[in-house]
Write a protein that binds this DNA or RNA. Structure first.
Lengths: 208, 208
DNA sequence: ACGCTATGTTGACGCTGTCAAGAGAAAGGC
DNA sequence: GCCTTTCTCTTGACAGCGTCAACATAGCGT
């Protein structure tokens, strides 16, 4: 039972994760080489293995670190938004879009079949925290009588929609003929969902 | 220049693709080995390379073959559905769900960063055909006065929603606490979208 | 002082994708 | 006829990869 005794004791672990995240900026996770990362940091090819045990667990930790960073950015974006629940939801969607655009391979790694949440506690924890953030932000947009089950379903659908548009857009899978940006599609879809929840028609207004 | 002179001349190419698809049933694309596939078919380790040039192009062809098969199944499902446009859209969503559940790794390969549509004509063609099927099925659900641009946007959002729910569900990313199956979420979301399309419209959206 | 645990190193193994060169058959012009 | 080209496929080699095993070195509690 020991935590970090001093801030720079186990820096290698963090440096490995940071180096991997840096490479993921322009390289898919599957062609990421542990040996190259180790060499880049000037350590032996076994150093990553010492700390993480296997490539899979290392990648899971990388994904966890990336997701944790995304969670922090999303929280900051929500805090900076207006006090309106709907505005905060839009801000969260913007943060999601920004994250997947800046780090598509981190997102792909965290949500793909390569690693499982059980592969590293960092990833498991990060996934829970991100989901809680999504859930709470969406729950704040619900009318007062909404049941928790209904809120969960709406959160799942909302997240899936933002996720789908963002991911298809990030990997260029949406046809170029569509006369809208991914941002427009996402915000329109959210407005539509919000309107459906409150079930009386009005013109949704949100800033940006 | 010749095409298939006889039905069993270039069978190796197809057999390679089929063997790869079979392995993708329970193995992620990234840990698929061309050498193993070749050995399984009793040919040399260079045989796949002869036909496809590189691992990337081979995987693109595999993804294309898988997508083409998915397109056929989706078409069949639509044909078997009732004559109602909404029923056909639901049937298409069911086919999509079934495909991603049966072949999650094929779907992941075709929509991920590993291969690009330009890597093999088969994939490019299959992507176009699937999109056309989606677009046409969704277009049939639009009120008569809908513009083509609006239809395109709605098709993109609808597809993204189905895609998001299906993919998150297929890879176990949706929390277990949600009191609904992926099928229920998908069909509820589609019903909501359909209702939104036919209901009195809110503000006309932005232009191009 | 001693051993334990954490942290890193070196060396080897089998597997992978890819390159290079060649074998054998079919196709087609002379 | 034959000769050349093309297509299909094989064999052999190479560097890079993840991983296993064994060893080195420090810090620390007892």
């Amino acid at each position: 039972m020991t935590a970090a005794v001093s801030p720079d004791v186990d820096r290698l672990q963090d440096r490995l994760l940071q180096a991997a995240l840096a490479r993921l900026a322009d390289t898919p996770a599957e062609q990421l080489s542990l040996r190259q990362i180790a060499q880049e940091l000037g350590v032996s090819h076994q150093a990553p293995y010492v700390h993480f045990g296997s490539r899979k667990r290392f990648l899971a930790a990388v994904a966890g670190a990336g997701m944790a960073q995304a969670t922090r950015q999303a929280r900051a974006a929500i805090s900076a938004a207006a006090d309106d629940p709907a505005a905060r939801l839009h801000a969260l969607a913007d943060a999601y879009l920004a994250f997947i655009r800046e780090h598509p391979h981190v997102h792909d790694l965290a949500n793909g079949p390569t690693v499982a949440k059980a592969d590293h506690p960092l990833l498991q924890q990060a996934a829970i925290e991100y989901w809680n953030l999504l859930h709470d932000t969406i729950a704040d947009c619900q009318p007062s009588r909404t049941t928790e089950g209904e809120t969960l379903r709406r959160a799942a659908v909302t997240w899936s929609t933002v996720y789908g548009i963002s991911r298809l857009s990030a990997f260029g899978q949406l046809p170029a003929s569509i006369p809208a940006t991914a941002d427009q599609l996402v915000h329109d879809a959210i407005d539509q969902l919000l309107a459906g929840w409150h079930h009386r028609k009005q013109e949704p207004s949100h800033g940006t």
